[in-house]
Nucleic acid binder design. Structure first.
Ligand SMILES: NC(=O)c1ccc[n+]([C@@H]2O[C@H](COP(=O)([O-])OP(=O)(O)OC[C@H]3O[C@@H](n4cnc5c(N)ncnc54)[C@H](O)[C@@H]3O)[C@@H](O)[C@H]2O)c1
Ligand SMILES: NC(=O)c1ccc[n+]([C@@H]2O[C@H](COP(=O)([O-])OP(=O)(O)OC[C@H]3O[C@@H](n4cnc5c(N)ncnc54)[C@H](O)[C@@H]3O)[C@@H](O)[C@H]2O)c1
Lengths: 211, 211
DNA sequence: TTTTATATGTGAATAATATCACATATATGA
DNA sequence: TCATATATGTGATATTATTCACATATAAAA
């Protein structure tokens, strides 16, 4: 067992997401062509950074002509292999789990939450559009939908157990909302979202600026 | 107006959060002293990194004796100025907003959501423990509780409007859940949480590893 | 009390990232 | 069609972050 995965979203990948957000914005405003300079300004990075990033992901523009926004968006989608839908399960249908299963935007990006799971029988229903199942059904669903990625939204005390069980069932990547350092074997991806830390860091920097 | 804040949680600050998580874990297991080596292994960084980070934040241990966990936790709290409570407001009481106001862990870190706001009168109630108010009340509440930080949980189409209005009312820092690049003046901190991107990056790395 | 083994703290070395600078290709306009 | 201004793409350079290496202090043992 590897002591906690030190996975962190690589900065050039993170910027690619930002670029996409900006490009969608530009498109909405009626642009169909963009230069690295404009995109950089919008994304808060230098134009060279934009070009280097695109270059890294083998995305090419036209000399002097800049980039076609649609081409860029398609190329970015290509990086994320958008040809096929991605099936995801979520474990824990408490406050955060319920919010996530109702989040429509996952679908727009072809990420489909095929089922959710909860230990509490009172949560097991179809109230929220997708089935909420007992954990015994995990194996079936994971096999049926070839699920490789799961969202962990259980209390921190249960997070490691849930993770271990999911790994046994073949899950390779996790989005984890429980504020604990999870222990994982090699080759398992865990992306930890810690909203307390995120809010606290805002407060930290806010106070720094104000002082 | 500065084109979108390129704010990003600095990596040494981010690691400080991780260390805290690990330290709490060690404490639970009965330890009261820790060495940079142990903490580094748990946090997924080198021992030198741990020491450099502590050194950066002026946190000191004892030569040969390592660090007292309680001292470290206190020192980390010191970095985040834990003497006083921090008041926060949240705008948008939809799926994600409702999850957040019920999140008890904010309180443990002395971050108090004093009120939430929604444009929809049907959401305005006291159902969720804290008052859900119309936006007209923003000014009053912000003044009364000296609020400096807000959580934006409104649809992306409204996010910029809400942000501008909050800045006018004196808010300096934001945790933003809407997937848009917000435009801000100087000295305003915006920490964007984009859960689609986070899930997508897990899928990206998972596929990379599997291949 | 003295010795010694060992963990810290930090400059120096290295690695990783980002910026600069410019050669190159080509859209655009004459 | 041709000339030219301009944006890309990328080596070279600078900056930033991490790791190495070791001098130093000191807990623990004798
Ligand atoms: N509520 C938030 O806004 C929020 C924000 C950030 C992080 N989180 C974290 O997300 C996790 C869930 O938070 P929440 O507020 O939704 O909590 P919650 O108590 O509302 O929900 C937890 C759910 O998990 C279920 N559960 C418990 N053990 C389980 C198990 N072993 N297997 C399957 N299901 C199990 C419970 O029945 C419950 O429905 C926690 O770790 C929390 O710290 C929550
Ligand atoms: N649901 C999720 O799990 C999730 C996850 C990540 C990000 N987000 C983002 O968070 C935001 C909210 O998502 P949601 O799912 O809670 O949406 P939602 O539609 O459930 O809730 C939005 C709420 O904002 C209120 N609102 C709209 N305009 C407003 C305004 N100008 N001022 C104040 N309140 C206003 C609405 O009345 C509604 O109650 C969106 O930007 C979404 O993309 C949601």
């Amino acid at each position: 067992m590897k002591q906690n995965t030190k996975y962190n979203i690589k900065s050039n990948l993170k910027r690619l997401f930002t670029y996409r957000l900006c490009l969608i914005g530009f498109k909405r405003k009626g642009f169909d062509r963009i230069f690295s300079h404009n995109l950089g300004e919008e994304a808060g990075v230098t134009a060279e950074q934009v070009r280097k990033d695109f270059s890294f992901f083998k995305i090419r523009g036209n000399k002097k002509g800049g980039y076609q926004i649609n081409d860029l968006l398609r190329a970015i989608d290509e990086v994320f292999k958008y040809q096929h839908n991605q099936h995801v399960v979520i474990v824990g249908m408490g406050n955060i789990g319920r919010a996530l299963v109702q989040y429509k935007r996952f679908l727009l990006r072809k990420m489909i939450i095929v089922a959710s799971f909860d230990i509490d029988p009172s949560k097991q229903s179809r109230r929220w559009g997708i089935p909420v199942l007992p954990l015994e059904m995990l194996d079936d669903i994971i096999k049926k939908f070839h699920v490789k990625v799961a969202i962990i939204a259980v209390p921190e005390i249960s997070a490691q157990d849930v993770l271990d069980r999911l790994i046994d069932l073949g899950i390779k990547g996790f989005l984890n909302f429980a504020p604990v350092m999870l222990k994982t074997p090699e080759n398992i991806i865990v992306n930890n979202i810690n909203l307390c830390d995120e809010l606290e860091s805002v407060i930290y920097y806010t106070e720094k600026v104000i002082e």
